[in-house]
Design a protein around this nucleic acid. Structure first.
Lengths: 112, 112
DNA sequence: CTGTATCCACGCCGATACTG
DNA sequence: CAGTATCGGCGTGGATACAG
């Protein structure tokens, strides 16, 4: 059976690989919002309720380093930075859509 | 805009709802393995590398309480218990498949 | 085999202050 | 506005022992 590598860890299971890559509660949410259109830091902070300043910064950095996000600095003053999906990031679209679909459905059904 | 409820928390975003429901690193992995066929505790422990005894037990309990898993006790000795997906659990199949597809693809591409 | 209970260290994350 | 740095509390989860 094939094995997969991510950050020095080996996985036999692609789902486990996926979860390790996009894990951490917030990554998926950030990707989801950036998927719809490029986003600025403050925008994401507003969109993602409950995320702290520090954690959002860390999440963005991590996603950038992992090649999912592109950070575009307009070198303006005041600072203007924008985050876009890379092609690799865009490949997560089916996952994000599946999550969204399920979330919608789950919500409806739990309204008993 | 509609809002969703989960464990006393309100979410505007279905993706955020999804992530809060199936979060915790391991839930998705357990569901994935149970999706393919009913599984026993020991089986899951072996299949999911790195999960600890305690956490697997907690995860299973949580998934059962949330209505994703059915716990079937055969009342044998030695104990024989089996976990199956509920109908609600099965609705997560598209999400799990999307994660698997992406995991496979991601693995291939990272082999540069 | 399938759990539950307890203990405790470690790491995550929130709060805060500061920089460009 | 868009970050980085530091600190400390609290919760998560690992190890272990025990039970049915």
């Amino acid at each position: 059976m094939a094995t997969f590598l991510y950050q020095d860890r080996t996985f036999e299971c692609p789902v486990q690989l996926s979860m390790n890559v996009i894990m951490g509660k917030w990554k998926v949410l950030v990707l989801w919002h950036v998927l719809r259109r490029p986003r600025r830091y403050g925008e994401l902070k507003r969109l993602i309720q409950g995320i702290s300043h520090k954690v959002l910064a860390e999440t963005l950095k991590s996603l950038e380093e992992d090649g999912f996000l592109l950070r575009i600095d307009f070198h303006e003053n005041p600072p203007h930075v924008e985050y876009r999906l890379t092609d690799q990031g865009r490949e997560l679209e089916p996952v994000l859509l599946a999550l969204q679909q399920w979330g919608m459905r789950y919500k409806t059904e739990s309204l008993t």
